[in-house]
Design a protein around this nucleic acid. Structure first.
Lengths: 120, 120
DNA sequence: CGGAATCCGCGGCGATACTG
DNA sequence: CAGTATCGCCGCGGATTCCG
């Protein structure tokens, strides 16, 4: 990995396990919607809390995800959503989905370009 | 990794080490140009032949790269280039580069959209 | 020259338990 | 609820050697 290359650095965290699925999970549903840690955890199947926390922190550090915490209530409420930058990165990644739909086996899940409901 | 998801499968090999760099190395220079194994090897710095062969075979299996062999001559001449599908995938990946150039630190190497000469 | 075979080390990731 | 702490595994990738 060349640390001077912007694309390399981006691909470095994008390629980590779970990262893209997390991004899409935050992207799905209504725009600008905050989602709780446990909510994301449940939606994603079998991710361990360690990895989820690790990834969210990375993405927050990269400015793709923003986190707000309400410590006044109990239990503590921590929520996440995509930033504008994050939304745009998902759009870029979805170009790869279009490519895949064009060149690979037909994907039954979703052919709709702007669908925010199905898996991807 | 969900094997029924086209995007997951694509990201699965795209995220392997060296894969994207190999794709860009084949993409650089003139279009449709064949490049030899040792040529790619030399261009890429310090990749081991095992990994390079592994990646090229994966990409060939996915239809992104095509290989022609001239066994009549000695030493055997083996050359690779991107397929049309491969060219288009590189275009999709370059959307991520544009995103990075927009949101991240200015990249000195290249701001030209269709440049096939610099690193990426 | 273009790989294939073998061996080995490391780190990413998973599982589980625990805490403020 | 929202994470941390600890441990252990295994699979990727690196180095090297050999073959057609």
């Amino acid at each position: 990995m060349n640390p001077e290359c912007t694309l390399c650095k981006t691909m470095d965290y994008l390629s980590k396990k779970w990262t893209i699925i997390i991004l899409f999970e935050l992207w799905k549903g209504e725009e600008q919607k905050w989602k709780r840690f446990s909510e994301i955890e449940a939606l994603m199947g079998h991710i361990s809390p360690k990895i989820l926390a690790e990834r969210l922190k990375e993405l927050e550090g990269e400015g793709l995800v923003i986190n707000r915490v309400d410590a006044s209530s109990f239990p503590v409420k921590s929520e996440y959503r995509l930033t504008e930058s994050g939304e745009e990165l998902v759009e870029a990644i979805r170009q790869i989905k279009y490519w895949a739909l064009k060149w690979k086996v037909h994907n039954d899940v979703c052919m709709i370009q702007n669908c925010r409901k199905c898996t991807f």
